[in-house]
Nucleic acid binder design. Sequence first.
DNA 1: CTGAAAGCGCTTACAG
DNA 2: CTGAAAGCGCTTACAG
Lengths: 295, 295
Amino acid sequence: MQAAAARLDYEPDPVARALRMRMSPFVGIVVPDITIPFFGIAVKAAQDVLEEAGYQVLIVNTHRDGLRERDALKTLLSSRAQGVLLATYGGYEPSLRLPHVFFANFAEAATAPRIALSNRDGIRALVDHLVGHGHERIAYVGGMPGNTSGSERLAAFSEAMAAAGLGARALTGLSDADWSVESSQRATTELLALDDPPTAFVAGSDNFALGTLKAIRTSGRRIPEDVALVAFQDPDRVGGILEPALTTLVSQEEELGAQAASLLLQGLSRSELLVSGIEVRLPARLVIRRSCGCE
Amino acid sequence: MQAAAARLDYEPDPVARALRMRMSPFVGIVVPDITIPFFGIAVKAAQDVLEEAGYQVLIVNTHRDGLRERDALKTLLSSRAQGVLLATYGGYEPSLRLPHVFFANFAEAATAPRIALSNRDGIRALVDHLVGHGHERIAYVGGMPGNTSGSERLAAFSEAMAAAGLGARALTGLSDADWSVESSQRATTELLALDDPPTAFVAGSDNFALGTLKAIRTSGRRIPEDVALVAFQDPDRVGGILEPALTTLVSQEEELGAQAASLLLQGLSRSELLVSGIEVRLPARLVIRRSCGCE
DNA sequence: CTGAAAGCGCTTACAG
DNA sequence: CTGAAAGCGCTTACAG
């Protein structure tokens, strides 16, 4: 009977199976914006690991909308998804009864595993490098402190400047909530219009690096001769054609995605890990190119 | 009773509902590579339209693997998805019993609605513009002719060159199947190493524009003084910081995604549309910037 | 009009 | 060990 079924390549109906067994083959990946290079690449890497393990991956894009995020989580739960990788943007509720791992953006109080870049170490490395070049009036162009990446990087900038004795010379230009090129361009333009404008910029993301670069260039200033620029992420990851090449932290999108997926897989087989509060940070490493003034 | 249920905000279990009603709230979007900017943006736009209409969107990334695509389609079908937006890459089978609309890449013989950029018109506009600048030895750096975008653009290049009386001076450098920056860089470098290298390049996609630009620059040539460059898509859509700014076709990722979604929605309410063979092409329009030699 | 029953396609616990 | 029955949570067609 079973042999006959196999020969006719019978496949059980997954919906009926999900109803009866209270579980589906799905794992969700929920991100605020799939068009941001960072998330696109991380999602792809995570998907590879999860498919390898036999799960069917469903990607959900929340457009940075907490309600959409909550709906997506609810849908995944009621679809009997096995778990979810979540870069939260306001829609998370601690009562979520679905195995989950946070990546990039956490809910602070949650006990689920979390993995992210070393926001603080990375920003400090960037600031310290600029300080080493002799810069004192340094500006940070970054995201609003409404999520983990935004908050940690902004706080780290203040701390690093204070530690360098430059707290009073720190400037901050926050972008809109959409982490877009345009918003960082506006913020940078405003900072450059100050009476005593910064001599160096730290861009808090890949998109922000583009916007900051564009604004500096539009103002007629040269990089790095007139203004130095370093960035938390490399906006030019695949191209390598920006001029000047940007000093950034080394790209870790793939590692982040793959390790987030691994954490979830581990959690699915050992459920105590899912409430362990484990936190993984990928070590930050600086890649020195031309925009900081080296060479 | 119903009132009581509403007050307790009871929600029917979607899995049981799907089993009983033979349909779920899902619509799938299946793409070869979500990290390619073109697909990321188109998917996001399509998702907006579909969610607005009340569907839950599931994005599936096939990594340009026909088997993964087939599996994804099978999973969507057996999960009782209502329909799917498909940028196919080899996994489509005509027997697919799931309402579907092709976007960007078709199966030639299929009768499902299809929507794409005007590959032929676009390439012709690019070639004609270079011819107008006096170029005769023109090279095309594009994708393998294994899918709609690759085939049509390649064919259009040959046709446009022939129509300009330059058939014998047409050069073609095909990238690897992954449509990556690196592969187009290699192809361009080979073309530039010829005894009689091209004086102008047509890049067949956003990523290819980056690779071609990089290779030309690496060879020590200036754009557009030594070599002209135009591209089918704008790799610099959000940034606008490439130097020189590239002459490309106008970006239509959003329109493509949104209209593909609309076609599917129409098809879901009027099923005869799903086998109508409707084909939509977004009109190509040239945006002249600096890399072609204008100004 | 209301309410109990059948059945969507499975899996598992149980009877034989 | 094999096979029929129960039940996952719904919706719909049917009996009352």
